[in-house]
């Protein structure tokens, strides 16, 4: 079954994966990737992946590209098979959990074959994965590792769609290639947001500091928490701008402008050492 393009859908979506200053300096490739696939005019799937940075994971740039594309395909097939896109009825938490885990297990299996084909060790392809199946009727999320994803409801409020997995040391997380219990919700988490959605976003952790409340000190206490809250000013402004650009230019031009913004269009983000990926979708 063929898919429609984003331009022909009810959504305007900007997405870019941009290399960080650290990898430019070290002459390494961008290890982030993203993939967007429309299922019909209102339903689609967006995926972002962040390749593991250290030398032990030297092919993570290939892993992230492969996983982003495969996850989008697997989840698209799943949504179609279950007919959610035609009925516009979102699944129960249990049904989505079962389907989403199965989809990512398929991705992992395909990745194992890909590693054999490329003659590389599986672990060198390590990457995180965040996927959203989005529609105006709600959002279905699944993820392994860190990064952020969120959505805007029909009251204009932004909220998170996932809880990232982080260790106690900066950057410690879990990857699709890791050996973990697929039943354990801290490693692979699924969520169903069964209420109207007007915008959504997915991003790798290189950008979270600039647009997400993620390390806040409690007043009058020596205690820090992760509120896991999209920063409304950032997303409201950018959602409006993405929508305007999308209405007045082509999809490709929008992607180019978004890439420019994440690359050099923001005084702080342009200095970021880590690779940067953000997908931002807005309902027309």
């Amino acid at each position: 079954m063929s898919s429609i393009s984003v331009s022909d859908s009810k959504w305007i979506i900007a997405g870019a994966s941009v290399i960080g200053q650290g990898h430019i300096k070290d002459q390494k490739p961008c290890q982030d990737a993203h993939f967007i696939q429309m299922i019909n005019k209102t339903w689609g799937v967006a995926v972002v992946c962040d390749g593991a940075g250290s030398d032990a994971y030297s092919n993570s740039h290939l892993g992230s590209q492969y996983v982003a594309e495969q996850a989008a395909k697997e989840l698209t097939n799943m949504v179609r098979k279950e007919d959610w896109n035609d009925t516009n009825k979102l699944p129960t938490e249990n049904a989505w959990n079962r389907c989403a885990i199965k989809a990512l297990q398929n991705v992992r299996q395909n990745l194992e074959h890909y590693a054999v084909m490329k003659n590389v060790e599986l672990k060198t392809l390590a990457c995180t994965v965040i996927a959203l199946a989005f529609s105006p009727h709600g959002v279905l999320s699944v993820h392994i590792g860190d990064g952020r994803a969120g959505y805007r409801d029909d009251n204009g409020e932004w909220d998170s769609a996932i809880t990232p997995f982080k260790g106690s040391q900066v950057g410690e997380t879990v990857f699709i290639t890791s050996e973990f219990d697929w039943e354990d919700k801290q490693y692979i988490e699924t969520k169903v947001i069964d209420s109207p959605v007007t915008a959504f976003t997915l991003l790798t952790d290189g950008l979270e500091w600039y647009c997400w409340e993620c390390n806040v000190k409690l007043e009058d206490k020596d205690q820090y928490i992760d509120p896991n809250k999209p920063f409304k000013q950032f997303f409201d402004t950018n959602a409006e701008t993405v929508k305007k650009i999308g209405e007045q230019t082509t999809h490709d031009e929008l992607q180019e402008k978004w890439r420019g913004y994440l690359g050099h269009g923001h005084p702080k983000i342009k200095e970021e050492q880590d690779d940067k990926t953000m997908v931002l979708g807005v309902l027309k």
Partner: peptide, 18 residues
């Protein structure tokens, strides 16, 4: 072509990791 303005304002008040 009109000017498009992506967000340039303040960041969330996240405490730095130590």
């Amino acid at each position: 072509m009109p000017e498009f303005e992506f967000y340039q304002g303040e960041q969330p008040k996240n405490y730095e990791q130590k």
